[in-house]
Amino acid sequence: MGVHSVWGRLRGYSSAMAQQQTLDRAALARQKAAQTKNERTRRRLFISAVHQALAPRRHQQITVASICKEAEVSSTALYYQFEHGIAQLLGEVLERAMRHAQRRIANDVLREHPSDNYRVVIAVYRVIQELFKYPNLFEVETVPRRWVQLIAQPLANAIVSDDRDLEDHPGMVIAEYHANAIIGLLRRDYTPSFEFLSKLVISQIVPVLGMADPEFGARWQELVHSLPPIN
């Protein structure tokens, strides 16, 4: 094979490599653009869901159509981002709310060094306080079981003091029962304040745990006044 033929092949190889690199860069740019678009769409849908959950209760269900209208995206885009639809999307709103409640509970426990019953009181108070920020969240046709579990988790963490698995622990059963009760009361929309609902739930949950206190009312007021106000 002559020198010119070798150089010709090398030039051809270099040209092909350059073309492939150009194609790879273009493909990467398209991939990044698509990822950015997906992230932007997902963020817009999430913000829309938050806004509608924050809205004063209207006795109107939050729907795919209402979320998509505010987010200015199609329903196809919503299901592309959230395979299980509105339950998954609003579930993410609830997850964020419960993460915030968990942080508040942890800070309160660190500051208060509470007894077992105080820890449960704090958990109920903070969970309900957080849920009252989203008065329209439960205006959906059906509340998924996943939502019940999300609300029950911080309650169960406060109830259970041993190392047993929470999933099969009686404390989780108690927590889920009261999480269901909280959701039901919020959906009925007759509770005047989160303090009222918190007292109502605590008056039921504490005796069930076998930790009733005859001076509970006074201790409750003392605890409420010691906690930082809602942000």
Rank of each mutant, 00 (worst) to 15 (best):
V224T: 08
P192E: 15
I151T: 03
F138Q: 09
W147R: 08
Q60F: 06
D116W: 14
S15T: 13
T142L: 10
D162L: 01
H4T: 08
V73F: 06
A106M: 07
A97D: 07
L200C: 13
D108Y: 01
M17N: 09
R164M: 01
A71D: 11
E70A: 06
R42C: 11
F194S: 08
K199Y: 13
I86N: 06
W220F: 15
V3S: 13
A152T: 03
V50W: 01
P135H: 01
A179F: 04
D165A: 14
E112G: 02
Q60W: 06
V201G: 03
S14M: 10
A87H: 09
L155Y: 03
S48L: 04
R44N: 09
Y80Q: 15
A175W: 00
I174L: 15
N157Q: 14
Q204K: 11
S74R: 05
L10T: 02
A123Y: 00
L45R: 03
R111N: 08
S161C: 05
E83F: 02
F138K: 02
K199H: 14
V50G: 02
R99A: 09
E39P: 02
R40V: 12
Y134L: 15
I122Q: 05
Q81T: 03
L155N: 03
A87Y: 04
E70F: 02
A53F: 03
A123L: 01
A29W: 00
Q129N: 11
S66K: 02
P154S: 00
D116Y: 07
P192V: 11
P214N: 07
N38T: 03
E39A: 03
T142P: 00
Q81F: 00
R30T: 11
G2D: 15
E95S: 12
V6W: 05
V50R: 06
A175V: 01
R104I: 03
A152K: 01
C68E: 01
A181E: 15
N231D: 13
E130Y: 09
I67S: 04
L227D: 06
A26K: 08
G217M: 12
E95A: 07
L131R: 02
V3R: 15
R58F: 01
E112S: 09
I202H: 03
W220D: 06
R145C: 13
R219P: 06
V93S: 13
L223H: 03
C68W: 01
L54I: 08
I86D: 04
I122V: 10
Y79T: 09
D24Q: 12
M98K: 07
L78G: 11
Y79W: 01
S5V: 15
L197D: 02
Y177S: 09
H169K: 04
F82K: 05
R58V: 07
A55S: 11
A71Y: 10
K32G: 01
P207N: 07
T191G: 05
S226Q: 14
